[in-house]
Design a protein around this nucleic acid. Structure first.
Lengths: 127, 127
DNA sequence: GTAAACGGTGACACCGATGTGAGGGGCAAG
DNA sequence: CTTGCCCCTCACATCGGTGTCACCGTTTAC
């Protein structure tokens, strides 16, 4: 498929798809006239990448994990990728905690404030 | 306290503290010579802000929530802040899901790959 | 009084994913 | 052939929090 179709199916802009290729995240073959053609499996690949981006991973990091996402890597490459993936996993868990903490703080604020608002409303109607 | 002490106690750089003030996130009084002096409660404030930053909130957003973090706001201001806080809460929850999904995907990769590595190791030792 | 440590402002730089626009080819249907 | 749509590359812009450097004033301790 060409870039337009991939873009539609993944809802990722053409600009971004080209960028991904630049970063080595996806692969394409070129038609004689230079147009990109993608194999079917790149759809899933792009979705996975998007998921990682959404979680805050960088393209650099994802590239380092790639050996484990494609054809069977050598022992050496696999081990390197494993290390990256494990440390990223840890980062995600840390991030998770941060978000949970922030949400809890937010909840406290929301709660305090709605109590306060209720009190305000009560006073003004009683007045 | 002066900026150095606040910086140490919150482990936020002086640079960032000044930036926060620029954005209206913290307040200070100035000594005659122009140096910032902070009240005790700004320590907690800065920590809260950091927590929100860590979760990906923008300073703009935090500013809009401020009315609910300080002195008792008017009904009107409180309602506006409430709206922001609730929508941010939702954003955080969405973010949370994204991270959980990415971590799950990562786990799948890690699992597949370690199985594969084990198989490789088995083959090479059997050979 | 002098040195050391602290503070102030201003400006430039960075990162990383994405938008945008210019200027130019490719290809299919009328 | 022409019109319309898809594609190409290159390059500049953006956002937001932080680092860093320059240059200069303040406070503190000896």
């Amino acid at each position: 498929m060409r870039i337009g179709e991939l873009s539609e199916r993944t809802r990722v802009s053409r600009r971004s798809l080209r960028y991904y290729e630049d970063q080595g995240l996806v692969v394409s073959t070129r038609s004689p006239s230079g147009q990109r053609h993608y194999a079917e499996d790149q759809v899933e690949r792009v979705r996975l990448i998007q998921s990682f981006f959404a979680a805050g991973l960088s393209s650099r990091t994802i590239v380092e994990m790639l050996p484990c996402m494609t054809t069977r890597p050598t022992m050496r490459a696999a081990q390197d990728s494993m290390a990256v993936m494990c440390s990223e996993r840890e980062r995600l868990s840390t991030m998770l905690d941060a978000i949970l903490a922030a949400r809890a703080a937010l909840d406290r604020l929301i709660d305090e404030n709605s109590t306060y608002q209720a009190r305000l409303a009560g006073e003004s109607s009683a007045r």
